[in-house]
């Protein structure tokens, strides 16, 4: 029975790889370290705030809900993470941004990229450009963010997506 269960779970995992979930855990741990506890909830973005942010950055939210993670180490709050999606040329790009307790970006990662072109956007080198930015930063491709040749649309979408989350986290912190 035990053997059968293990075989079954392996088969289950192989057929439907939970790559998004695994990538989220890996991204949070690589940013905050392994010795952490994570609380997670789906947060509904308040309508007025949603509209205000969308107008400010000229990009819509992927949905009304956002994935909000609180990261603790020995019961002390270390920071936050927000998981969201933006559209590339035609498919969603799933990404996560990790913040310190003041809403400054600590790390950002592409969790899942689905487009055939522009995969280089997942590189550590490109994502490291966002470290230290917050809601007051410019987030302008070609100025404070370097583009990627062949990934123009994805680079713009993700950059604005990260800007959106930097503004949103400040509102979530006030609550």
């Amino acid at each position: 029975m035990k053997k059968l269960t293990i075989l079954f779970l392996l088969l289950n995992a192989a057929l439907f790889p939970q790559d998004i979930k695994e990538n989220i855990n890996r991204a949070i741990q690589s940013c905050f370290g392994k010795d952490i506890q994570v609380q997670y909830e789906k947060v509904k973005i308040e309508q007025n705030l949603k509209k205000e942010i969308e107008t400010k950055v000229s990009q819509k939210f992927f949905s009304d809900e956002i994935y909000f993670y609180k990261i603790f180490n020995d019961k002390s709050l270390k920071g936050f993470a927000l998981l969201d999606n933006v559209y590339g040329k035609s498919l969603p790009i799933t990404f996560i941004v990790m913040f310190d307790t003041n809403g400054k970006i600590l790390c950002s990662e592409i969790i899942k990229y689905r487009e055939p072109y522009g995969g280089a956007i997942q590189s550590k080198e490109w994502n490291s450009q966002f470290i230290g930015k917050d809601d007051n930063s410019e987030f302008a491709v070609g100025k404070d963010i370097t583009g990627i040749s062949g990934a123009t649309i994805s680079v713009h979408s993700v950059t604005i997506g990260i800007k959106k989350l930097s503004i949103l986290i400040k509102s979530l912190l006030k609550k």
Binding site: Q18, L91, T94
Partner: peptide
């Protein structure tokens, strides 16, 4: 056993699929 495994399979898949299925 087979029945239990099948239920688990379906439940876990639909949960995982729904939670992070953005496509």
């Amino acid at each position: 056993t087979i029945f239990l495994l099948s239920v688990t399979f379906l439940l876990t898949q639909s949960l995982f699929a729904q939670e992070f299925d953005f496509f």
